[in-house]
Simulated scan of single mutants.
Amino acid sequence: MKFTMSRNVFLAELQTVQRAISSKTTIPILTGVKISLDSEGLTLTGSNADISIETFLSVETEKADLTIESTGAIVLMSRFFGEIIRKLPEDQFTLEVLESRQVAITSGKANFTINGLDSDNYPHLPVVSTTNQMQLPVHVLNKLISETVFSVSQHESRPILTGVHFVLADNSLLAVATDSHRMSQRIIPIQQGEDFNIVIPGKSLTELSRSLANDEEMVEISIMENQVLFKTQTLSFYSRLLEGNYPDTNRLIPTSFNTTIEFSVPSLLSAIERASLLSHESRNNIVKLSITSEAVVLSGNSPEIGKVEEALNYEAVTGDPLEISFNPDYMKDALRAFGDMNITVNFISPIRPFTLTPTEDSQQFTQLITPVRTS
Rank of each mutant, 00 (worst) to 15 (best):
Q191P: 00
E90K: 13
D91E: 15
T67V: 15
F81S: 04
K63N: 10
R274L: 08
S100L: 11
F230P: 06
T234M: 07
F237D: 04
E225D: 15
D333K: 03
S276M: 02
R251P: 05
V140H: 05
T232Y: 08
T344G: 03
T259I: 07
F81N: 09
M1E: 11
F196V: 11
V199F: 14
D361M: 08
N111F: 05
L98P: 08
T292Y: 08
I324N: 09
V317N: 13
A64E: 12
H165K: 14
E225P: 07
R283G: 02
L289N: 13
R86D: 14
T374H: 02
M5N: 00
V127R: 10
Q135K: 10
Q133H: 04
S282G: 07
P159K: 01
H124L: 08
N142W: 00
E217Q: 10
I324C: 07
P353G: 01
S204Q: 06
Q135W: 02
Q364D: 09
E273N: 12
D215C: 00
T31G: 05
G32D: 07
M77C: 03
E310G: 05
A104W: 00
H165G: 10
V33E: 12
S157Q: 11
S58V: 05
P201C: 14
I29S: 04
I272Q: 02
F347H: 02
R86M: 08
T4C: 10
E225H: 11
F326Q: 03
P321D: 14
E99T: 13
E194Y: 01
I53N: 01
T260M: 06
P303G: 07
I221V: 10
S267E: 13
T113N: 13
T260F: 01
P159A: 04
M224S: 14
P254Y: 09
A104F: 00
A49W: 01
S204I: 10
L278W: 09
A49F: 05
I74S: 13
N214H: 04
D38H: 12
K2H: 11
L57H: 00
E216H: 08
G32K: 03
D38V: 12
A110D: 07
I343G: 02
I286F: 11
N313P: 04
I68W: 09
S302G: 13
F365E: 09
I53C: 05
S151M: 02
A175H: 00
S282F: 09
V138N: 12
E360R: 06
E207Y: 05
T370E: 02
S151K: 01
L57W: 03
Q364R: 09
S302T: 10
L322W: 15
G306N: 12
S302V: 09
D333C: 01
E281F: 03
F257C: 13
N197R: 09
L208G: 06
T359M: 06
T148Y: 02
N8T: 13
H165F: 14
S299Q: 15
P350R: 10
I21M: 03
A337S: 14
P247E: 10
R186G: 01
F230W: 10
R79D: 06
Q15R: 10
P89T: 09
E273Y: 00
D329P: 00
V164S: 14
G339N: 00
M341F: 02
H155F: 04
F257L: 14
I68C: 01
R19D: 10
N8G: 09
L14H: 15
S299F: 12
S282M: 05
